[in-house]
Design a protein around this nucleic acid. Structure first.
Lengths: 387, 387
DNA sequence: CTGTTAGCGCCTTCAA
DNA sequence: TTGAAGGCGCTAACAG
C-alpha cells in the first residue's frame, strides 16, 4: 500500500481543439461539431478520424473557453452559512445530486457565520460568472445579494428569506413543524415548555418557528375547554417560554442557561444550589423527579441549539438528565437516536434537490412569480418525550 | 420579514473591459494594468478616470476570460469521499480557510462513496482546468487519478494514500494514534479489546490503525513482564480482536455485531439470549457487570464505526450500555462529549489547511520529492473508559 | 506612461 | 458535408 512506482507522464500541455483538428486532418469546426453532438452533419469517415484523434491525444474540451464563448459555463454557486450545522451538510447532498443530474457544477462557498465572508464570496461567484446561486443566507439584507441578483443572476433561497428580496425559496414548513412539536409536547402532558432558539429577529425560519410555538401554546385552551383548567392530562394549562440562545456569545449563553436552570430547579422541586448539582445524586441510580413536580420540556429550534442544551444539562444534572427534562428538537442529528431525543426531521435532501431544480428552471428562463416550496417535517418520537 | 419590495434592476449584460475602456476614454490595456495592480505605471489622472468608470459600470473582471488567457484560473478541486463523515466536513473547513488566505477557489465534489462518481468528478475537474486537486480518495487505484495526475495537475492526498501514486499527503499519524488509544485502554485495565474498523485492505489509514492496534496489543507483554501474568491491573494479558464492520452492507454489519454480542455476553457473564436483551433489565437502574467478569472495551477506528457500535449497543443493552462496554473512538464527533465516549481527536482543521498549503506550493512549481505530513491525535478521556 | 496588436480555446455565422 | 473567418473578455508583448 505504500507509495511505490513513480508515475512518469507526458504532462506538458493539454491538447487543444486545434491539435485535434491537425491530428485528424481537418478543421476546428468539425471538431467543435463533434463535441457538440452534431453527428448528423459528419461523414462516418471524418467522425471516425476525429474520434481516433481525440483518443490519441486524450483531448478534453476546455470548459472555460466554451463558457467564454457561449456565455454559460454550467457553474452555479452555493453559499452556505454554516457547515457545522448538520442540516447544511444534508442539504448539500441533495444539491450535489441534483446538480449531477442536471449537468451543473456547484461551487461551494462556506461563509462560516461571517457576514463579511458571505459578501466576499457572493462577489467572487459573480466574478466566475456562475449561472445562478443557491443561498443559505447569513446576512439577511437584500443589499448583500445585490451584486449577484442585481446582475440578473437567478438566485434561490434555502431555509430562510432575505428581507426585501423576491426570489424562489425552499425550506421546511416552519409553522407546521413548530406546531407539530408543540402539540406533541402538550399531548404528552408537559406543564411547562421552553422554546430555545438562536436570536431570531434576523432569520425568518427561526422567527416563524418561534411565532408558531407561541401560537400553538395559546391555542391549547381551545382544545381543552376554557383556560386555566382541564388540560391534556387533566392538569391546567401548560406554560410556554421562549429562551434565546446566542451560540456565538458564550457569556450570553451562560446567562440564558442560568435562567433555564432556575426554571428547571423550580419546576422540579429540587432546589439545586447552582453548579455541581449532579453531585447531589451520588448513587448513580435513576431518580425521577419528585412526584408532584411539574413536568418540563425543552423545544430546540434546531440541532445546534439542542446540542448546546443537552451538553449543558448533562454537565449539570449528570448522565441521567433526561429524567428531569424532556428534549425535542427540530432537525434530526445522528446523536438524537443515540440519546433518545425526540426530533422533527427536515426533508433536507429534498430541500437541496428542489432548490437546484428551481434554479435550473430560472436559468432556463422561466419567468413566473417567485415560488415558495415548503416541505413538511416528520415527527420522530423517542424516549425523551414518551415517558 | 416577508418578501416585499420588488428588486428592479438593469441587469442586461455585464460590462466588459472594453466598455470600461470606452467609458474611461482610454484603451483596454490600461484597464488591464489597473486590474492587475500595476499602479506605478498609471498617471493619477488616468487612474482616477478608470476608477470612476469601473464604479459607474459596476464592472467586474471575468475570471474565466482571465484564466483562459493566463493559463491559471485559481480554481482547485476538492474531492470528498463522504460528506456524511464529520471528519470530512471538518477538514473542509480548514481547506476553505486556507483557500481563502491563498486566493484559491475550491470546487467541492462529493463522491458519496461511489467509485464511479469519483471517476467522473475527477474527469470533470480536469475539464475545468483546475490548477490542482486535493483528494480524499475512495478508489485507491492510481488509475482513477490518472486523468488528473497524468495531465500534470498537482495533487495532494488527504487521510489516505493511493496505491502506486507518488504525491504529497497529509493526515493523522495513524500508528501513533492507534497505539495511544490501545495503551490507554490497557492502562485502564481492560481485559479484552475489540478493534472495530471498516474493511481496511483498501484504505491505508484504516490499515495502519489496525496494524498498530495489533502491534500495541502484542507489545503489552514487554511492559508487564512475561505473557500470561501480571498485566496492567494485576490481571493477565489482555486479549485483542479485530472486528470488520462493512457499513455499506447491513447484513454483514448484523453478522459482525452478532459476533461482538456473543463476546460481550461471555465476557460479561450475562448470558443474554439473543435479541431483546435489554428487557432482562427492567428495573431501569444501572446494573454494573458482575464483579468477576472480564472488562471489555471497544476501539472504533473512526466516528461512523463508533456511531454504529453505540447505536447497536444502546438498542441491545439499553441506555445504560456503557456500564457493560467501554467505547473509545478515533475522531471526536459532537455526540462524544454528550455520551461520555473517550476519543482521539484528529487535527482536522489543520489537516485541511496544510493540504492546501502543500498544493499551493506545488502549483507554484515546487519540485521536491513527495512529502508526508503526519499530525498527532489528541486523547480525550471521558467517562466511558475511566470508571 | 499609454495604446496597438495578437492571440488563449472554443463556437458560430457564412460560404463553398 | 466541410472549412475559413471572426469574436467572447482578457492579457502580454511591442511599439509610441
Amino acid at each position: 500500500m505504500s507509495t511505490t512506482s513513480t508515475t512518469p507522464q507526458t504532462a506538458p500541455r493539454r491538447a487543444t481543439i486545434t491539435d485535434v483538428a491537425r491530428e485528424a486532418g481537418t478543421g476546428k469546426t468539425s471538431i467543435s461539431r463533434y463535441l457538440n453532438g452534431e453527428m448528423s452533419v459528419l461523414s462516418p469517415d471524418l467522425r471516425a478520424r476525429i474520434e481516433a484523434a481525440i483518443a490519441r491525444l486524450d483531448y478534453q474540451p476546455n470548459q472555460m473557453a466554451r463558457g467564454l464563448k457561449r456565455g454559460r459555463n454550467r457553474l452555479i454557486g452555493m453559499l452556505l452559512a454554516d457547515l457545522t450545522n448538520p442540516y447544511t451538510v444534508e442539504v448539500l447532498q441533495g444539491v450535489e445530486a441534483a446538480c449531477h443530474a442536471l449537468g451543473l457544477m456547484p461551487l461551494i462557498c462556506h461563509a462560516a457565520n461571517e457576514v463579511e465572508m458571505e459578501r466576499r464570496y457572493l462577489q467572487l461567484l459573480t466574478t466566475y460568472r456562475v449561472e445562478g446561486v443557491i443561498v443559505n443566507a447569513l446576512g439577511v439584507r437584500e443589499e448583500t445579494l445585490r451584486p449577484v441578483v442585481g446582475s440578473g443572476i437567478p438566485a434561490v433561497l434555502v431555509d430562510r428569506l432575505v428581507d426585501g428580496l423576491v426570489a424562489d425559496m425552499v425550506g421546511l414548513d416552519n409553522r407546521a413543524a413548530a406546531e407539530l412539536g408543540t402539540r406533541h409536547l402538550l399531548e404528552s402532558g408537559f406543564d411547562e415548555i421552553w422554546f430555545a432558539v438562536q436570536p431570531f429577529e434576523q432569520v425568518s425560519s427561526r422567527q416563524l418557528r418561534e411565532a408558531a410555538f407561541r401560537e400553538a401554546m395559546g391555542a391549547q385552551a381551545g382544545q381543552a375547554g376554557q383556560a386555566g383548567q382541564v388540560g391534556q392530562g387533566g392538569k391546567g394549562r401548560a406554560r410556554g417560554h421562549t429562551l434565546v440562545l446566542n451560540l456565538a456569545d458564550t457569556a450570553e449563553v451562560e446567562r440564558s442557561l442560568a435562567e433555564l436552570d432556575r426554571a428547571i430547579d423550580a419546576a422540579t422541586n429540587a432546589g439545586h444550589s447552582g453548579r455541581g448539582g449532579n453531585l447531589a445524586n451520588p448513587g448513580g441510580a435513576a431518580r425521577p423527579a419528585a412526584p408532584h413536580s411539574r413536568r418540563i420540556a425543552l423545544f430546540a429550534a434546531n440541532a445546534p441549539v439542542a446540542l448546546c442544551l443537552a451538553l449543558h444539562l448533562k454537565a449539570r444534572y449528570g448522565a441521567d438528565w433526561q429524567s428531569r427534562v424532556a428534549l425535542l428538537s427540530i432537525d434530526d442529528p445522528d446523536w438524537a437516536e443515540l440519546t433518545g431525543v425526540t426530533t422533527i426531521r427536515q426533508p433536507t435532501y429534498e430541500i437541496g434537490y428542489r432548490a437546484v431544480e428551481f434554479l435550473h428552471e430560472r436559468i432556463e428562463g422561466v419567468q413566473t412569480a417567485a415560488r415558495d416550496c415548503l416541505l413538511p417535517g416528520e415527527l420522530i418520537v423517542r424516549a425523551s418525550t414518551s415517558r
